[in-house]
Amino acid sequence: MSRFKIVTTGPGGTDHSLEMETLSAIGAEIVEVSGGDDELAKAVADADAIYAKGRPRITAKVIEAGRKLKVVSLGSVGVDSVDVDAATRLGIPVTNCPDTFIEEVADHAMTLILGSWRRLVVQDQMVRKGEWTKARPMLYQFPRLRGMTLGFVAFGHVARAVARRAAPFGFNMLAYDPYIEELVMAEYGVEPVGLDELMQRSDIVSMHAPGTKDAHHLLKEKHFRQMKKTSLFVNTGRGSTVDEAALIKALQEGWIAGAGLDVLETEPVGHNNPLLGMDNVTLTAHVASASDRFDKARRRRVGAELSLVLSGKWPRACVNPSVLEKSSLVRWQPFSMERGPGN
Score class of each variant (00 low, 15 high):
128 R>G: 02
58 I>M: 13
108 H>F: 12
165 R>C: 07
140 Y>W: 10
159 A>S: 00
93 P>N: 00
80 D>N: 15
81 S>E: 14
59 T>C: 05
128 R>T: 02
91 G>R: 06
160 R>T: 02
130 G>V: 10
135 A>S: 14
58 I>L: 12
113 I>H: 06
116 S>D: 01
111 T>H: 13
106 A>K: 02
143 P>D: 10
177 D>N: 09
104 E>T: 06
80 D>F: 07
98 P>K: 00
78 G>Y: 04
137 P>I: 15
58 I>E: 01
168 P>C: 08
141 Q>F: 09
83 D>R: 08
95 T>I: 12
106 A>V: 06
76 S>L: 15
138 M>A: 11
146 R>S: 15
113 I>W: 04
78 G>P: 05
72 V>M: 12
162 V>H: 01
115 G>Y: 09
150 L>M: 13
120 L>V: 12
94 V>Y: 01
168 P>M: 06
102 I>W: 04
71 V>N: 03
93 P>Q: 05
133 T>N: 13
140 Y>L: 09
166 A>P: 03
114 L>V: 09
177 D>A: 11
71 V>E: 00
125 Q>I: 08
77 V>P: 06
104 E>H: 07
139 L>P: 00
171 F>E: 05
128 R>M: 08
156 G>P: 06
141 Q>D: 08
117 W>K: 00
120 L>A: 14
129 K>A: 08
92 I>V: 13
130 G>T: 07
161 A>Y: 02
114 L>K: 08
147 G>S: 14
96 N>D: 09
70 K>G: 03
75 G>W: 06
136 R>P: 02
63 I>W: 06
72 V>R: 01
137 P>H: 15
81 S>C: 15
101 F>E: 00
165 R>D: 07
106 A>F: 10
77 V>S: 06
70 K>W: 01
111 T>G: 15
94 V>R: 03
80 D>M: 13
176 Y>C: 02
163 A>S: 10
113 I>F: 08
117 W>Q: 02
102 I>R: 04
65 A>C: 04
80 D>H: 11
111 T>V: 14
87 A>V: 12
61 K>D: 11
92 I>H: 05
111 T>C: 15
78 G>K: 07
76 S>M: 15
156 G>V: 11
133 T>E: 13
122 V>Q: 14
169 F>G: 00
116 S>N: 07
87 A>D: 07
106 A>Y: 03
149 T>A: 13
155 F>S: 02
167 A>K: 12
99 D>R: 03
157 H>G: 04
79 V>L: 02
148 M>F: 08
107 D>C: 12
88 T>H: 09
154 A>Y: 08
84 V>P: 03
75 G>E: 04
107 D>S: 08
142 F>G: 03
110 M>N: 05
143 P>T: 11
92 I>Q: 06
82 V>N: 05
153 V>L: 11
147 G>M: 15
144 R>M: 15
133 T>W: 13
86 A>C: 15
104 E>Y: 07
88 T>P: 06
144 R>S: 14
122 V>K: 14
69 L>S: 03
111 T>I: 14
109 A>W: 02
61 K>M: 09
